[in-house]
Write a protein that binds this DNA or RNA. Structure first.
Lengths: 204, 204
DNA sequence: TCTTTTCAAGACCACTCGGTCTATAAATAG
DNA sequence: CTATTTATAGACCGAGTGGTCTTGAAAAGA
């Protein structure tokens, strides 16, 4: 008899299951390993979901990825709104925003990278759903940064001939470039000094 | 008899085969699709090599990828040496370098992306061989750019209080950020205007 | 209580992965 | 000429891929 010795292993043990939590945990896996580098079992382990549950709830790997990306973008935009919001003056807000990027692109944080930048490089060229989200993020961020620069200019805090829209685009390229160079584990001190040097070219 | 009807299909047709050409073609595939997104058959098609030849010549997918990355980096550094070399003044060289990045990050060129940036985001955190190469590239590029800024400063062409090393780091973050935002297909005019605005904060 | 719902476990599917190896044929060296 | 070298074509391998489906047990509602 080549039958299994122990049949009747325990099967289902339903637990309450929060989709948002699952998306958040899946986001962490995609963030660390990229889309192609993430296998279904990685996601099942991270979310504590079974294959069936994951497919019923999200439809598949790609759909879950888009949910995770949306969440990452929403978090990032909310953070920018907070940093550049009315709680601080515009220049102070930009300084706080830059300090946040310095923190997230130094040492181990830097090595972890950025889901949005990694996704842009890995998928934006081939996946229209992804490209639309990446473009929307950069446009939204640009609008928020340009608003802060415009408020700074209106209160006379900018150097001569600084145009808010150009300054915002420069700032975005700079921080996304920080995310790239941060992948090799730059020190916080060096990144902060570079960020300070940039902002000092714009503020009076 | 379930044998094949046509046995004796033609097998070997040896051709001379240049490894550097194969590396260059493999580079193009990795560049467009990323490391995990590239399958062996893609590389065989692009190089016109058989599996056996590819393994005999390069040892495998990962080793071939490193060869391709080395080639990409060597090409990039040679181009920078040319742009920032004695053929032009330092500020003119920086302007030419920026114009090249604008060209490579606009429209369809931008969508194609950058093998180095994509590799940094996809693999640098997990692959020491890759991380070493990415770090070496950024260090080398920073040294070259800092040299150009230093020469510009020595001839009085920089704005007050611009420090060559900080300026070089800012420039690198900016151009690598351009590669990221370029993935969504920005227009050349917008990118060029942004690059001009950046350089104008540094030159007198 | 009994029925329905909700989930986990995991077998199973067809396919693809990177990598190895054999058989064969053209080119080349002697 | 023959012998060797160099390359191709492609079968083959075990492992892994994303995705589907069946089974069974715990939870929830009646």
């Amino acid at each position: 008899m080549a039958h299994k010795i122990a049949t009747h292993l325990p099967r289902g043990r339903p637990r309450s299951f929060d989709p948002e939590t699952a998306v958040e945990r899946a986001m962490g896996v995609f963030w660390s390993r990229g889309y192609h580098g993430t296998a279904l079992p990685d996601l099942l382990r991270a979310t504590s979901l079974s294959r069936g549950s994951l497919y019923a709830a999200f439809g598949g790997k790609h759909a879950l990825f888009l949910r995770a990306l949306d969440r990452y973008i929403a978090d990032a935009l909310a953070r920018i709104d907070d940093e550049l919001g009315p709680r601080h003056g515009p220049v102070e807000g930009l300084r706080i925003l830059l300090a946040g990027y310095v923190d997230r692109t130094s040492g181990a944080n830097g090595r972890r990278g950025c889901l949005l930048v990694a996704t842009a490089m890995e998928l934006a060229g081939h996946d229209p759903d992804v490209e639309a989200r990446v473009r929307a993020f950069f446009n939204a961020m640009e609008a928020k940064a340009a608003g802060a620069f415009a408020r700074a200019k209106a209160s006379g805090q900018l150097a001569d001939r600084v145009e808010p829209k150009s300054a915002a685009r420069i700032l975005i390229c700079f921080v996304e470039g920080l995310r790239v160079t941060g992948k090799t584990g730059r020190t916080r001190a060096a990144s902060q000094a570079t960020a300070d040097a940039l902002l000092d070219r714009f503020v009076r």
